[in-house]
Simulated scan of single mutants.
Amino acid sequence: MKTLTLESGQLHRLVLTPGRALRCTAGSLWLTLDGEDVTLRQGEQWTAPVRGTALVEAISVQARLQLSARSGWLARLTRHRQPTFGAPLSLKWRL
């Protein structure tokens, strides 16, 4: 889980995937994604409905935002940085 602290008026850009949850843990936040504007107060949560770039701004003196861990196939893919392969394939020929 990633935590982000923003000062009043500070903008931050986030690339989100569907299902990624954002929770305001302190202060108040404004965010916009794909034409949808959302205001979050302390304790409130919002889940990204689509993939896109969101703009987040603190609308209180200071605000703190927690991003949930990525979910879905991309998270599973990036969790394992090196592929795992089985034993070498051996072929037997019968004549």
Rank of each mutant, 00 (worst) to 15 (best):
M1P: 11
M1V: 10
K2M: 12
K2S: 07
K2C: 04
K2I: 10
L4F: 04
T5S: 13
L6H: 00
E7D: 06
S8F: 14
S8V: 01
S8D: 08
G9V: 07
Q10Y: 03
L11I: 03
L11C: 07
H12T: 10
H12F: 09
R13V: 06
L14A: 04
L14R: 04
G19N: 04
G19V: 08
R20E: 15
R20V: 12
A21K: 12
A21N: 07
R23D: 01
R23Q: 14
R23P: 00
C24A: 12
T25K: 01
A26W: 01
G27S: 08
S28P: 00
L29V: 03
W30S: 04
W30N: 01
L31V: 06
L31Y: 05
T32V: 14
L33Q: 01
L33A: 03
L33K: 01
D34F: 00
G35Q: 03
G35L: 08
G35A: 09
E36I: 07
E36K: 13
D37S: 15
D37T: 11
D37K: 04
D37E: 15
V38A: 07
V38G: 09
V38P: 04
T39H: 14
T39L: 12
T39I: 14
Q42V: 06
Q42F: 00
G43N: 05
Q45V: 13
W46H: 13
T47V: 13
T47R: 10
A48F: 03
A48S: 13
P49A: 08
V50T: 15
V50Y: 08
G52E: 03
G52Q: 04
G52S: 02
T53H: 05
T53D: 12
T53S: 14
A54E: 08
L55S: 09
E57T: 11
E57V: 13
A58Y: 04
A58L: 01
I59E: 09
S60H: 07
S60R: 05
S60E: 11
S60Y: 09
V61P: 01
V61G: 13
A63T: 02
A63I: 03
R64M: 07
L65H: 05
L65P: 00
L65T: 07
Q66S: 11
L67V: 04
A69Q: 12
R70P: 09
G72E: 01
W73V: 10
R76Y: 10
T78P: 00
R79N: 06
R79H: 15
H80M: 06
R81L: 14
Q82C: 08
P83V: 12
T84D: 09
T84Q: 15
F85C: 06
F85M: 05
F85N: 06
G86Q: 07
A87C: 05
A87P: 11
P88F: 03
P88M: 09
P88I: 02
L89P: 00
S90A: 13
S90P: 00
L91N: 05
L91Q: 13
L91F: 12
K92F: 10
W93L: 14
R94F: 09
R94E: 15
R94G: 07
R94T: 11
L95G: 10
L95D: 09
